[in-house]
Every structure is written in structure tokens, then in C-alpha cells.
Design a protein around this nucleic acid. Structure first.
Lengths: 126, 126
DNA sequence: TATTGTACCATTTGATGTAAGGGTACAATA
DNA sequence: TATTGTACCCTTACATCAAATGGTACAATA
């Protein structure tokens, strides 16, 4: 399994890592229950910071593409292949787009939407 | 009708202006069809920029609290009293909160929500 | 001709959030 | 004792956006 990180590009490093691991799963280059390099190891190999790799792993685990077993290491999730094809991001986009579309059609300005969004995200609701 | 603007406070100037005009309507200090000072006049009186007052008027007209009649000036909307009590912002907060709550419960990180939000607002949807 | 709301062009200031990196420390284990 | 994932602390660089301001110009009109 080869991972190539483009430092120059605009795509965040952790996002590149996630994308490539998902692709490797989809292309059967890594199979369910296969072990993955440790965070520190992979960070060292790719010349990335530990935190960057840890972030990618954290998100991959949330999406059940990988499975961390504490001190025993990290492994490909049994359902990795199915879960790798689920584009959580697309679902988020769709839901948000629907809500924002409704607001815009009611005449709410983008500026007002942004402020309200910020309030919600920061739990500053009345 | 007296309007007092607090330059020091954190509440945006245009927002203070909107709030005070709505309050004046709700308290019967200005009645339906009453004329309002022109944008330039009010900006001069309150020592604000024309654009700041124009912004407040634009939003007040959208909410049908006031009515602009081009060169003839600006007047209080016939339905001003009812419309002044409608808190559009609260509606926006509620709708956005509902959507974001759903996403969060699905495990989507705030960071991902913010990025998706930004994409939607800037029409960067695939 | 002066005034009305409005529509552009632009700028500065401040706040906020992401991405990435750096450091330290922890419990659980082989 | 070295390694595992993880959880904190913090900093830097960069991007985006709100808010406010400034200037110029327009058609419609009294």
C-alpha cells in the first residue's frame, strides 16, 4: 500500500490521507482486519506530524473504515469496504443545502444566515 | 421619536437602529404610514454613515416594517406593528439548530459541518 | 436643482476558524 | 521498557467574513 501526500496542493493533508486509505480499501489493496501502521509510524514514514495522522485515523474510525484497539494497534474495519463508499460529506451537504435554500427563499440574507449559523455552532442560542 | 446609538457597545450599529425603530413601532411612538427621516438625514442626525442607515432600512423594508417609495421617501408600513413582533432571526436560529443538531447526532464533526456550510453558502456544491 | 432610494466601485478593522505543528502525559500492554 | 491510541496544553499561518466607511452615479420627482 502506497500513500502519496502532496504538500503543495490545497487539499488538507489529513484529508488526502483519509481519501487514499478509503481508496485502498475500495480497490482491495488492504482487506478487512488487516493491520495498519501505528500513528507514529505512519507520521514518520510520510513525514507528517503525529496529530495530522491521528486526526485522519480518528475520522476514519468514526466512519467505521478502521478500528482502533488501543495498545494493540489499528486495523481495517470488517465493514470497511461498504463504509468507504458512503460519502458522509455528501449527506451533510444535502441536508445543509436544503435548510439554507429554504431560508434564502424566505428572504433571509446570507449575512444573517451566517450569523445565526455561528450562534448555533457556538451554542449561543438565547 | 428618539434614537440612541451606542458606538462603544458590541451590538452592530445597523442592528441597534433596526431594534429601536421596531420598538418605537411596538410602543406606538410611530404609527402606520408615518414618514421616516431620509437615509441621509438620519445618518447625519445620528452621525452614522449613509450606508449604515441604508442597510437598516433595507432590512426593515424586507421585513415589511417600513416602506420605501422611491423619491417620495420612506414610511412606516401599514402592517408594521404585526411585522415588528415577528422575530425572523429566531426562526432562522430554530431551523438551523434543528439541522445542525441532526448532523451532530450522526457524528459529524463541527469542523466538517462548517466546511460544508461554507461550500453551500458559496455555491460550491458539486 | 436639490432630494429620494439605490447600486455600484472600493477599503480597513476585527473576529473567527482551519490546518498544521510542537510538547507533555496517561493507562494498558507485550 | 518501549509502544499503542489518546488527551490535553499551546503557537503559527492563512483564509473568510462582518461591519463600517468612503466615493460616485443613476432615474424619478417636487
Amino acid at each position: 500500500m502506497e500513500i502519496i501526500i502532496d504538500i503543495e496542493g490545497s487539499v488538507p493533508l489529513f484529508a488526502q490521507l483519509i481519501e487514499q486509505i478509503k481508496q485502498a480499501v475500495l480497490n482491495d489493496k488492504i482487506m478487512a482486519n488487516d493491520p495498519l501502521p501505528s500513528i507514529r509510524q505512519l507520521a514518520n514514514d510520510l513525514d507528517l506530524n503525529n496529530k495530522t495522522v491521528a486526526k485522519a485515523y480518528r475520522l476514519l474510525e468514526r466512519d467505521e473504515v478502521i478500528q482502533t484497539k488501543g495498545y494493540r494497534g489499528t486495523f481495517i474495519h470488517p465493514n470497511a469496504k461498504v463504509n468507504s463508499s458512503v460519502d458522509l460529506n455528501a449527506l451533510v451537504l444535502t441536508k445543509l443545502n436544503k435548510t439554507i435554500d429554504t431560508l434564502r427563499k424566505e428572504g433571509v440574507t446570507d449575512s444573517e444566515i451566517r450569523i445565526a449559523f455561528s450562534d448555533v455552532m457556538n451554542n449561543r442560542i438565547s
